[in-house]
Amino acid sequence: MSINATLIAQIIVFGILIWFTMKFLWPPISGAMDERAKRIAEGLSAAERAQAELKDADARVAEEIKKARAQAAEIVDKAHAQANQIVDKAKTDALLEAARVKASAQADIDGMVGKARETLRGQVAALAVQGASKIVQREIDPAAHKALLDQLVTEI
């Protein structure tokens, strides 16, 4: 073992290599690693944010669905009520109409009956006058016996 100029050669080579490593080898690799670490951190935080947003959106969607359901239920209830109302109205209208029709029919019938009765009365009065005139063999003056005839007519 002897110390010789190899020592100096090694010192020079070592010095140059330190400079070279510092200048050309370390910065790109270390920089890329830091950059990647940053990107990964950003990606993770973005994923976290997205997850939080998703949760928010889910909550909003659930809220919306709940609201929509309530609204739909309301609408259906209203529709039911309206339908019932319509049916009820139709029923009452129909009943009223029926009553009205019945009443007018009744009135018609009553009128016709009255008319028929009048007619019959007239005819009965005429027949009575005819019969009576045949019985008494002479002309009865309707004018002279009007009061009598009228009384007869009302009595029939």
Binding site: M1, I3, Q10, I11, F14, G15
Partner: peptide
């Protein structure tokens, strides 16, 4: 294993 190399580095 050459003392020149080892010492060269340590001296640097």
């Amino acid at each position: 294993a050459d003392p020149n190399v080892a010492l060269g580095m340590s001296i640097t």
